[in-house]
């Protein structure tokens, strides 16, 4: 084997990994390197092998051949739980344990590595505040009493709690409404900037990939079609399949982003023109030339003033 023993600048390296289910090859001889501190996004159609690839990194899935390195060490050569304690994991459904409070959920990994309850509480309180949940109100709640977006915020806190080297996220926001999705996208961006933790993020939303990724890997039928920076992929797609995937997608913000950041009014008396959340900002701007306000998604009233303040901030 030619694997290099010193892979220090790679947070994760997949080396010719392969996985077959029921005689069907799901991941074919895949090699990939993710840099330390990188926000790495894996996109592709449903069934293309994204989840399988991701799970090979924390050994939820065992590759048939090839090797996986995390921080330069072959993961097959180290104790399973030691590896997993260093890797955060966020699932599509938040998968919070319904029999535990927000605190207990967020502290599972801290518990497992033997951090005292007091220290754990401090850490969780800080993180909850950072994801926009007031610790006093949320610490002792049960998952039942949380909205989808709140659950996913707790899921992120749980993944971050033990200060992992790496966080794996599998379509974490795809079950959320567009506003919450945008809010959480912004949140994860901020967190990534603050902590510089390596993140591998799976999605099949190309727009999300373009907004978040430092680099994007495009998967199709168990193979990588292209790996590159967002603008590279949009401007120079490797082949027609990649082009088809990203056609018409820009990383330009939509109205949802504006609403997500709170630039709207709840007051809604009077007659307004209506717009959907996924409309572009330029459509909104055109309408605001003639009207003083536009009603988005039947509930958010966006005025000229809101628009201008948003543009000034971003």
């Amino acid at each position: 084997m030619t694997a290099n023993k010193h892979e220090d600048k790679n947070a994760v390296k997949l080396h010719h990994v392969k996985k077959t289910y029921d005689q069907e090859v799901v991941v074919k001889d895949l090699s990939l390197a993710v840099d330390v501190g990188e926000f790495f996004v894996l996109v592709g159609a449903s069934g293309s092998g994204k989840t399988t690839t991701l799970k090979m990194i924390n050994r939820l899935v065992q590759p048939e051949s090839g090797q996986v390195f995390v921080q330069g060490t072959d993961i097959a050569q180290q104790p399973l739980n030691d590896l997993r304690h260093r890797i955060g994991y966020v699932l599509q459904s938040s998968a919070l344990f319904p029999n535990m409070t927000v605190f207990e959920n967020a502290a599972v990994t801290l518990n497992a590595v033997g951090v005292s309850n007091k220290q754990a509480q401090q850490r969780i309180e800080t993180l909850l505040t950072e994801v926009g949940l007031d610790p006093e109100r949320y610490l002792n709640r049960y998952p039942d009493a949380l909205s989808g977006g709140e659950k996913q915020r707790v899921g992120i806190v749980r993944a971050l709690a033990a200060e992992p080297d790496l966080i794996l996220m599998d379509e974490p926001f795809s079950a959320l409404d567009p506003i919450s999705r945008k809010q959480l996208q912004n949140l994860i961006s901020e967190i990534h900037q603050r902590y510089q933790t390596t993140i591998i993020f799976v999605t099949h939303d190309m727009n999300e990939a373009l907004r978040l990724g430092d680099r994007i890997a495009v998967m199709h039928a168990g193979e990588l079609l292209q790996v590159g920076r967002p603008e590279q992929i949009v401007q120079h797609p490797a082949n027609s399949e990649v082009r088809a995937l990203f056609e018409g997608q820009t990383n330009a913000a939509s109205i949802a982003d504006l609403v997500a950041q709170g630039y709207y009014q709840v007051e809604q008396q009077g007659e307004y023109q209506a717009l959907e959340l996924d409309a572009t900002l330029s459509t909104l701007a055109q309408m605001l030339v003639t009207d003083s306000a536009v009603l988005v998604d039947r509930q958010y009233l966006i005025t000229v003033d809101d628009y201008l303040r948003y543009m000034a901030q971003n």
């Binding site: 739980n81 994991y89 699932l91």
Partner: peptide, 18 residues
């Protein structure tokens, strides 16, 4: 038990007894 919960408990490296 919901398989996602079991997967999560695996992924966090929790002990058998936990």
């Amino acid at each position: 038990i919901d398989s996602e919960l079991l997967e999560a408990s695996e992924a966090f490296g929790l002990s058998w007894s936990y």
